[in-house]
Simulated assay, not measured.
Amino acid sequence: MAALTDHELDQLAARLGERLRAVRDHVVTAESCTGGWIAKAMTGVSGSSDWFDSGMVAYSYEAKQALLGVSPQTLEVHGAVSRETVIEMVSGALVRSGASIAVAVTGIAGPGGGSEDKPVGTVWIGWKRRGGYTRAELFHFDGDRDAVRRQTVAAALIGLETL
């Protein structure tokens, strides 16, 4: 996925907002590597208060535990950038909000922080509907820090459209 421009991200968020408003869904975000960018994209849409519930930025292990209820054992065994962690993040966001759907992201945007097992550009995104299924997907994005984060925001918004 190529990194999108600000205008393209705005268009994605607006399209999502129209869909959420039509079905009366409300969304919550739980963000790590994007630092609130998904929530920013959504709240940049006029009228987003009709469908945006809240957003949480949980960057550190401690914040993931305190704000989202991620288990210390999950973080110790699997690390912050893992399927297990993103599933706990997206589930925790729903528990702690009034939203009907949630998205969570955790990854390595770079330029440092990567490893052989989890190189820069490794991102997990999770989506969940209250009372429904959880979907988690692993992405490997190319580019610098900004490009990885932009691609993550786009993938998160696109994934919400399918819930």
Score class of each variant (00 low, 15 high):
71 S>G: 08
115 S>M: 15
61 Y>S: 13
23 V>D: 15
50 D>K: 04
49 S>A: 04
95 V>I: 04
17 G>V: 11
59 Y>L: 04
19 R>I: 06
142 D>W: 09
88 E>N: 01
134 T>C: 01
20 L>V: 04
74 T>E: 02
106 T>D: 04
80 A>C: 05
104 A>M: 11
58 A>E: 03
85 T>N: 11
162 T>S: 10
155 A>T: 01
102 A>E: 00
113 G>R: 14
6 D>N: 10
92 G>S: 02
2 A>K: 10
65 Q>W: 04
117 D>R: 13
11 Q>P: 13
90 V>S: 02
123 V>T: 02
79 G>F: 07
32 S>H: 09
131 G>V: 06
160 L>N: 05
132 G>P: 13
141 F>I: 13
44 G>N: 03
163 L>K: 05
112 G>V: 15
90 V>N: 14
99 A>F: 01
88 E>D: 06
80 A>F: 11
54 S>V: 14
28 V>S: 00
100 S>W: 13
130 R>A: 12
120 V>N: 08
58 A>I: 05
9 L>E: 10
116 E>Q: 13
144 D>T: 09
29 T>W: 01
58 A>F: 00
140 H>I: 10
85 T>A: 04
154 A>M: 00
10 D>C: 15
99 A>Q: 06
46 S>E: 15
112 G>S: 15
29 T>Q: 00
108 I>L: 14
59 Y>F: 03
50 D>Y: 14
79 G>V: 00
85 T>Y: 03
15 R>M: 14
35 G>W: 10
72 P>C: 00
86 V>A: 07
47 G>P: 12
24 R>K: 14
19 R>T: 11
24 R>P: 13
128 K>G: 15
30 A>F: 03
80 A>P: 09
108 I>R: 10
26 H>R: 13
96 R>I: 12
65 Q>G: 07
46 S>A: 15
149 R>Y: 04
46 S>K: 06
54 S>D: 12
67 L>I: 10
80 A>N: 06
65 Q>H: 09
22 A>R: 12
20 L>P: 03
80 A>H: 06
47 G>I: 11
76 E>T: 10
13 A>L: 10
158 I>H: 12
108 I>V: 12
64 K>M: 07
23 V>G: 10
3 A>K: 03
89 M>G: 11
109 A>P: 13
93 A>E: 03
11 Q>Y: 13
52 F>S: 10
38 I>K: 07
105 V>S: 15
80 A>W: 02
138 L>R: 06
69 G>A: 02
135 R>T: 14
87 I>T: 14
28 V>D: 07
33 C>W: 07
129 R>D: 02
5 T>Y: 07
77 V>I: 12
147 A>S: 01
135 R>E: 05
122 T>D: 08
149 R>S: 00
20 L>R: 03
62 E>H: 14
125 I>E: 01
12 L>H: 09
140 H>C: 06
129 R>T: 07
36 G>S: 04
54 S>R: 11
145 R>M: 02
24 R>M: 15
71 S>H: 01
151 Q>F: 03
107 G>E: 05
17 G>R: 04
22 A>Y: 09
116 E>W: 12
87 I>Q: 11
96 R>T: 13
92 G>W: 06
99 A>D: 08
